[in-house]
Amino acid sequence: MVERAAPQLVWTREENPVWNADKQRVIGGAPEGTFTLSFADGDALPGDWWAARTSDGTVVGFGRIDLTWGGDAEILLAVDPERQGEGIGSSILQHLEDEVVSQGVNYVHNRISDHPRRDFVHDWLVVRGFRGPVDSDLRKRVGSNWAARADSKPAHAEEPYDVDSDPGGQGPGREDKGGYVNVDQHNY
C-alpha cells in the first residue's frame, strides 16, 4: 500500500477521556482482535488520550499512551478505517512519540500479537523504527533523531557576519581590520 502525504491534523489532548461515538467509529471499526477495549458509551478511559482531527473538525484517529512505573510506555494508535493509507497513522505515531519524549521517557513499546493483520502491522512499525518479534514487544527509541538534528542549524549557530553593514568593523574573518578568525566566515 502506498501512503499519500499526511493531511494536516489537529492534535488535541483529551483531559477527561471517555468512550464515545468517535471512538466507536474509529477504534470499534477495526477488525476484531485489533484492540481489546471493551467500553460502553460514556465510560471513563484509563491512560492519556489524544484525538487527531482534520481541519473541519472530523476525528480521523486516536492515540493513547499507557505509562506505568519506570517509564514503561505502551502506545496505541487507531485510524478511521475509511481513512487508512493517507499517512494519518504515521502522523499520529510521530505525535505520540513527541508526547512520550515530553514526559521524559526514551522508549515506547507496542504489542500486536493478537492483531488480525499482524504481519502487515509488524512491517509498518519496523519501517518506522520499531524492533522486536511479531509475537512479543516491539520497542523503539524515541526522541533520538540525531541525524536530522545534525543537519539542522544548532540553536547557538552564529549568524553570518554582514560585512556591508559594518564597513569599518572587526568582525569574524576581517583579519585585515584586526578582526578575529572564523574559518567558516573568512573573507579574502
Binding site: A44, L45, P46, G47, D48, I65, D66, L67, T68, W69, G70, G71, D72, E74, Q103, G104
Partner: peptide
C-alpha cells in the same frame, strides 16, 4: 512522582 506513570492505566490493571 512522574516515575509512577499515569494515574490511570490499563496495563497496571
Amino acid at each position: 512522582m512522574d516515575l509512577f506513570g499515569s494515574e490511570q492505566s490499563t496495563n497496571a490493571g
